[in-house]
């Protein structure tokens, strides 16, 4: 089904693209770094596989936040589901929301990847470091949560949701 897309809706689509694109960029780089570190740890100690997998999975969340905001934008801008399109002002709000979750996810994902890789190294060096490694790695999640929250608030109070 082809939807008639106005300028506001097109802006909403850009917002969705920025949300998922930037968040996945950060998450992908972060996960790559974490995975490289975990593979190194597993190469030395095969028992590290499960713990390495956990550290590698942690930077995935940023991509999920971005993906969620992008889906909401696609649904409520009328691209998916055939609802009413967005006004130009609402479209700009959508870009704000997408940028919030996208850029927050970019920084948070990369940061979390570096910490996760380092934590995998620390755990293989000293297995007692696992819990503390998880805590340190989870701290980088907060920036992504701020971005996600602001994106939701923008969508709610900007009249999109």
């Amino acid at each position: 089904m082809v939807v008639e897309i106005g300028l506001g809706t097109a802006l909403g689509a850009i917002g969705a693209g920025v949300a998922v694109g930037m968040a996945c960029l950060g998450s992908g780089i972060g996960q790559g770094i974490a995975a490289a570190g975990s593979v190194g740890a597993v190469a030395e100690d095969p028992d590290m596989f499960a713990r390495g997998l956990i550290f590698t999975a942690l930077p995935e969340t940023q991509a999920i936040y971005g993906f969620l905001i992008a889906i909401l934008l696609l649904v409520f801008s009328g691209i998916m589901g055939g609802g009413a399109g967005l006004s130009v002002t609402a479209g700009l709000v959508a870009i704000g929301a997408g940028s919030a979750v996208g850029f927050a996810g970019l920084g948070s994902g990369m940061g979390q990847g570096i910490t996760a890789s380092s934590a995998a190294g620390a755990v293989v060096e000293d297995p007692d470091m696992f819990a503390r490694g998880i805590i340190f790695t989870a701290i980088s999640e907060t920036q992504a949560i701020y971005g996600f929250l602001i994106a939701i608030l923008l969508l709610v109070f900007g009249g999109i949701l």
């Binding site: 780089i29 790559g32 770094i33 490289a36 570190g37 975990s38 593979v39 190194g40 740890a41 190469a43 030395e44 100690d45 970019l106 920084g107 990369m110 990847g113 570096i114 890789s117 995998a120 190294g121 620390a122 293989v124 060096e125 000293d126």
Partner: peptide, 24 residues
Amino acid sequence: STIKPVLNMFPYTYPNARVRARTG
């Protein structure tokens, strides 16, 4: 500008994990 320094670390993540295992 944000990604560049991160990508410079990237090649060292695998060797460093192996080396840290041996350091332990």
